[in-house]
Amino acid sequence: MRTTILGTGAIAGQHARAIRELAAHGITAQVTHAVDIDADRAARFAAEHDVPRHGTSLAEALPETDVLHVCTPPGAHLDATLAALAAGVHVIVEKPAVLSLAELDRIAVAERSAAPARSGPGTARFTQVVQHRFGAGALRLRRLLDDGALGRPLVATCDTLWFRPPAYFDVPWRGRWDTEGGGPTMGHGIHQFDLLLAIFGPWTEVTAMAGRLAREVDTEDVSMAIVRFANGAMASVTNSLLSPRETSGLRFDTERATVELSHLYGYSDENWTFTPARGQDEAARLWIPEPDALPSGHTAQFVPTYQAFATGETPPVTVDDARGTLELAAAIYRSAFTGAPVRAGQIGPDDPFHESMRGTGPEWAPVKDVPAGIEEVVR
């Protein structure tokens, strides 16, 4: 399959390396085009990753593309995705998929009427990068819960405690509602609480707070939430960019065990800890590490995703999966800015938080000018 990478910043390199690694898993794919609003940056990326063609126009690359990887700032995701689906090109979008529920609902409509796929049977499909779902430990834990081996899920904590200095926000699209979509809730913690949802299932209610405590941004720099799930379990979720000792941590307490994951930007089986409950020593034998399994990361997600594209099957992460996670982000903002709990399904098309994560807005005032040129990236 011929692949185009749109947006050649830092995350694009991970995509290029993961696509090369697909060959070891029996998948033939090649990055044939690199596209960026900055022609020089596209050229440097192409030279570094041995990409035969590069330029500034997505429209010129699409006719020779089977799969589009969207690695631009979030504000440019929607238009690129819609153009690709209409052209019969599969789309893999970095997180967050888009800036709002309204935009994701537009993608869902576009996917249902997408053109026949250029490569493989069926029509073009959409998926979002949520690579932490695909580590061996996460897949094992989900399987044990599905089998009932660990009893009922009860309590969880989900912490994204990262640090971004003020200079990080000198990049003009960062820290803005209209180009990044939100602060750490949208751009950073979303990976961890996506994994939380993948393990504990659908959420039903959230109560949250958010604040701009230390960074000169329009968005929050920290948020905290309490989440209730359809199965009755409860979890706390913290998203911070103000934490000098960085860590990404999830803890899952079930009737028969505590299962913990501590890492930063990716994990292997070594990052998991399994503690059986008292009198449940047999449960410890269920946790069997797989040292040869792929760690969480883009390769682990791209292998089953490209296999699905090739066979015309549904990719392992669907637009509905992405929407459940994005809806939780919107609910965190709505609860934080209105002071009221939010239930799943409550944010409908007439709700301001459907159109923007800012919704009715926080009490603090904007501090940044709108960056120019974001819309040019897909031309």
Rank of each mutant, 00 (worst) to 15 (best):
E260M: 15
D253H: 11
Q128S: 13
R142V: 11
E355V: 09
H263Y: 09
L261S: 10
R323S: 07
D221W: 03
A331S: 10
G249H: 13
G232W: 01
L328F: 01
F163S: 12
Q131E: 15
V222Q: 13
P165T: 07
V171F: 15
S262I: 12
H77F: 07
W364S: 05
G122F: 05
E180W: 09
E282K: 08
G135D: 10
P276A: 10
H77V: 08
D79Q: 12
F134N: 02
D38T: 10
L241T: 12
E220C: 09
D170G: 10
G181S: 10
D146A: 15
H298W: 11
L145F: 02
D221G: 04
A29F: 05
T238G: 03
V370H: 15
L139G: 07
A233W: 00
T157R: 07
R379D: 13
T258E: 10
F302W: 10
S243E: 15
T325G: 04
T207I: 04
T28Y: 04
P289D: 12
T311G: 04
I190C: 06
A24C: 11
L326C: 01
A117H: 04
E376G: 06
F126V: 09
R278V: 09
F274T: 09
V98L: 14
P304M: 04
R118T: 08
H49M: 10
R20K: 15
S57N: 05
R334G: 00
P371N: 08
V51E: 08
V319Q: 00
D146P: 00
R212Y: 02
I347F: 00
E355D: 15
E220V: 08
A322P: 01
I190W: 01
P304E: 07
S119P: 02
A300F: 06
D369L: 13
V303K: 06
P341L: 01
S240K: 00
D159T: 02
A365E: 15
V91T: 10
A124F: 06
H33S: 11
S356N: 09
H90M: 04
R278Q: 11
D66I: 05
R323K: 14
S57Q: 10
P73Q: 12
P316V: 09
T314N: 03
G135P: 07
L99Y: 08
S100V: 03
S100M: 03
R41D: 09
A24I: 11
H49N: 13
F229I: 00
P315R: 03
P63G: 05
T65A: 06
G88Q: 09
E355G: 14
P172W: 09
V31T: 07
A34V: 05
W173N: 13
W272P: 03
V91W: 04
L286P: 06
T247Y: 12
Q280H: 15
A283E: 02
I27H: 07
D36Y: 05
L104G: 04
A59G: 10
T123D: 13
H90K: 05
F353H: 05
W287K: 01
P362Q: 02
T360K: 11
N239D: 12
G148N: 07
V155K: 02
M186A: 15
S262T: 12
D38P: 06
F353I: 02
S268Y: 04
E220F: 11
T305A: 06
A283T: 14
H69C: 14
M224R: 03
V370L: 14
R112I: 02
L78R: 08
D159A: 06
A365Q: 15
H15S: 13
P52F: 11
